[in-house]
């Protein structure tokens, strides 16, 4: 796999705005930014209301994913270019999710909405309707998602990468610093997890660092790139960003995203927790 298979740059995107086989999809948790302006022709996916099951804590099931993509006018053969705010966290989560349901041609816009905006590229408020499609998803892949028991079993046995900020890892904060901190769960991290914040994989403009820089980043932090790896954060979107760096950019075989992440692990009864670095 090469970078070009999984990432496009803003220049490529600008040149393919009118390409009928390409669908731009803005993914965010707060979609009000999309309403003010988005890449011309882009459709919107709401991470919270459209990618998450409305009742249970889980992502939407296969039928729900098929319904969602059909309604958005996305076909199985379309090349889907995902982008969003928050340095592509939610777009990376959506990418992981498109892969879970077996979509073949899906890529991230390197740098996401931020790079597009910082380059003063065209944004429009107008929403272009796409004709409905008949999307068929594959059975969900299980090789890129970790569930809680696997995380507990991985302590001391597999690479665990906690991609939250150092303060969250150490248990001094319970959420990213743009959110209020009062939460139900215990603070800290999974024992033996290395703290490599997701942000170290990104440049200031939101683009991913080079393969060489990424390999050095994880190796220097003590991650054995030959071993199985599980990445987690608070709810699984920042770790989807790291999953993308390891699995899609570096091409490592066995990398899973633990989307239950700290809000699940830190609420489990009886599991070991470490605090401080």
């Amino acid at each position: 796999m090469s970078r070009a298979d999984v990432l496009v740059d803003t220049q490529w995107a600008a040149a393919h705005l009118d390409d009928a086989s390409v669908v731009f999809v803005e993914v965010d948790e707060d979609t009000s930014a999309y309403e003010k302006g988005h890449i011309p022709g882009a459709v919107r996916v709401d991470w919270k209301t459209e990618l998450q099951d409305p009742i249970r804590r889980d992502y939407v099931d296969k039928a729900g994913f098929e319904r969602l993509l059909s309604e958005k006018g996305i076909g199985n053969d379309d090349t889907v270019i995902l982008y969003g705010g928050n340095n592509n966290w939610f777009a990376a989560y959506a990418y992981w999710y498109f892969k879970i349901y077996g979509h073949e041609k899906v890529k991230l816009l390197d740098g996401g909405r931020k790079k597009w905006e910082l380059e003063s590229r065209e944004m429009v408020a107008e929403v272009k309707a796409r004709p409905k499609a008949a999307y068929r998803a594959k059975e969900p892949r299980t090789d890129i998602r970790a569930l809680r028991d696997e995380v507990v079993a991985a302590i001391g046995a597999k690479n665990l990468i906690d991609v939250r900020s150092p303060d969250e890892y150490a248990g001094r904060l319970l959420a990213p610093a743009h959110l209020p901190q009062e939460q139900a769960q215990r603070a800290g991290h999974v024992p033996t997890a290395k703290n490599i914040p997701w942000s170290k994989a990104a440049n200031e403009d939101g683009t991913f660092k080079s393969d060489e820089e990424l390999r050095k980043l994880y190796s220097d932090a003590g991650v054995d790139l030959g071993r199985d790896t599980i990445a987690y954060c608070r709810i699984g979107e920042r770790s989807a960003h790291t999953w993308f760096a390891l699995h899609e950019l570096l091409g490592l075989d066995s990398v899973k995203n633990y989307d239950g992440s700290w809000t699940e692990y830190g609420s489990l009864v009886g599991v070991p927790i470490e605090k401080e670095a």
Binding site: D28, E29, D30, S32, W47, K48, Q52, R57, G85, N86, W89, F90, A175, P176, H178, L179, P180, E182, Q183, A184, Q185, C233, R234, I235, E237, R238, T263, S267
Partner: peptide, 13 residues
Amino acid sequence: MSNPASGCGAPDQ
């Protein structure tokens, strides 16, 4: 933030 499963994105500033 009563619902921890709700997102990590930055809210309206």
